[in-house]
Design a protein around this nucleic acid. Structure first.
Lengths: 341, 341
DNA sequence: TTGAAAGCGCTAACAA
DNA sequence: TTGTTAGCGCTTTCAA
């Protein structure tokens, strides 16, 4: 492994000049810079991130904290963020909290504090008070994606509005008995999403002058099997069967489609079904949905963090002002929703 | 942020003793250690990973290189690896190569070389010669999971044996016309898995004295829609319809189940279907499969790397001997396979 | 525009 | 068992 002085020697300059030439910080003449770059390339020199971090105080690494890895939304956000970060020369260090509480504690009390990252984003994560204060105490930019973090900049779709949009779509098609498959309370702990989406659903019904019927609501777990079970209950009741279902996620909506098929019901002939997400499988199942573009959310989160880091380099640090950013979401109508006969 | 000398001062010892007490390296008396730990805890001291890395040459960070994030296998491997790593105080830095070639180049020529990681594992990744040599040149432990890396320790199921097992299961049920949905050639580039699985399938047929019929093979893309399309072709042919399908992945097998349903065929009454993976949805669809436990593979990969790092700390470095580790896989029979009538 | 030199915050000889 | 001290490989003043 060649070091910076190998490069300096070969280029016939000082190590300071090499550092300036390669990092772009500080003035270097065109000619010198070219010589340095050439020398570095010849030697296969790559800066040591530890030494650079220690000397500069910047790690060029971002921490991503997620509650699970095996869910499409989380990995999509990470994918988007990493794409932007890699392009800017940053790495992404992943903290997956899906293990037990002990691991979660360690991440917040140790891993995130040992100066390995310049900034952090969390995905759909509700943080305990001490976790949050510890995060903020290190004085680094933090962005919360898809979940509310008090005192922190956040980026999320407007869950209430999105749920209204989906329900409005069904209402506008003439449906009157519209069921909702939401999240169970335990999911609410880390998300708050189920509650918001249910709220939007009820708002839409009320505005349309429709009753909010407790029997048309089922709590589930955001998975295909969970949606299947919930829909079986909703659609199995002979006389009070809903003519439309709004599921709080595409995976549950797909479960509902499969349940309808198993009950001999046509989608959308007998029942219209809509979800939220625009999951990769939505198109295959012809599922109408409200797309929430998680890859774009990840890109956006990364850009927000990079901008904050850039700002703190130029101006005084000072706690960055927390701000709320709304991510776009659009209705996509496919073949799972149709007019009520 | 308190530093190591704050702790030393509070505990009334030297910084060297603090380092020894907190890292566990070197002799420290019980009493002193307790005092140091208490002082560190009082101050909320956490070691700076940069400074520690620079001084010790160890980063306590592992690199994970994956070709995609939105596939169950990859994220499961990462999940398993991270669990083990976190427990050992390691972080995991993620390099997702799903972007364009430019990003891939940067990762291998820059990010992985700048000394941010102590070791690297790759998942289902075929590396170009220069990528591999660069990786090996940094002299760090490397493990390839689910993909063949020449000159590197690897961990993978025996794809040929697994495919044989799945096919043997169908043969033993009396099936004679057994189709195969494999991967297309482009997938082979990064995997070699499609070829191996097809080989196992053909071996099984040959051993059973069954002909290998080109018309019973379809190439697909490891997704549910891909499996659906392939199965429609296979099952749509009226007179030569196979009575069983072996798909090279559960997702394709699930697509096949949906295709069979759409064609009015009973599974397993009219056609038996088996996959490979034990995907989370396999149980829901009653899919028989060969489980390959990717979380366990990730855990194992992390353990192999940690062991290699441990070894290099005690004995001379020297290129670790590349070795091949076979991950376990077991047949799981559910309701998608049955005896040929 | 460049170079000299003082750290960044630790770890690991080495000495005591 | 503990302390002293010399780096680890860079970045960034400061002076030229």
């Amino acid at each position: 492994m060649p070091g910076i002085d190998d490069v300096a020697r070969l280029a016939g300059v000082s190590t300071a000049t090499v550092s300036r030439a390669l990092s772009g910080n500080g003035p270097v003449s065109q000619k010198t810079k070219a010589r340095v770059v050439q020398a570095a390339s010849d030697l296969g020199y790559v800066v040591s991130s530890d030494a650079s971090s220690l000397a500069s105080g910047r790690t060029r690494n971002i921490g991503a904290v997620v509650p699970h890895l095996n869910r499409w939304f989380f990995t999509s956000v990470i994918e988007g963020a990493e794409r932007v970060l890699l392009r800017s020369g940053y790495d992404l260090t992943l903290y997956n909290l899906s293990g037990d509480g002990e691991e979660r504690r360690r991440v917040f009390e140790h891993n995130l504090l040992r100066n390995r990252v310049d900034a952090v984003f969390t995905v759909s994560l509700e943080l305990a008070e001490d976790e949050l204060s510890r995060l903020l105490a290190i004085g680094k930019p933090v962005v919360g994606v898809g979940g509310p973090l008090p005192g922190v900049s956040t980026l999320t779709i407007d869950d209430v509005a999105v749920a209204r949009l989906a329900t409005d779509h069904l209402v506008s098609l003439g449906h009157r008995r519209i069921a909702h498959i939401g999240g169970s309370h335990e999911f609410d702990l880390d998300f708050h999403i189920p509650t918001s989406r249910r709220l939007g659903y009820e708002e839409s019904l009320r505005e349309a002058g429709l009753p909010v019927d407790e029997r048309l609501h089922r709590a589930s777990d955001f998975t295909i099997p969970g949606g299947y079970d919930a829909a079986k209950q909703l659609l199995g009741t002979p006389h009070e069967r809903p003519t439309a279902i709004f599921a709080a996620s595409d995976e549950m909506a797909i479960g509902a489609i499969l349940a309808a098929r198993d009950l001999g019901l046509q989608v959308p002939g007998d029942v219209s079904i809509i979800g939220i997400d625009d999951h990769p499988l939505a198109e295959f199942f012809g599922l109408s949905t409200v797309a929430q573009h998680p890859v774009g959310q990840g890109e956006r989160a990364a850009e927000l963090l990079l901008a904050a880091l850039d700002r703190s380099r130029t101006s005084a640090p000072g706690r960055p002002q927390p701000s709320g950013h709304i991510a776009p979401a659009d209705l996509i109508v496919r073949s799972s929703t149709a007019a009520h006969p």
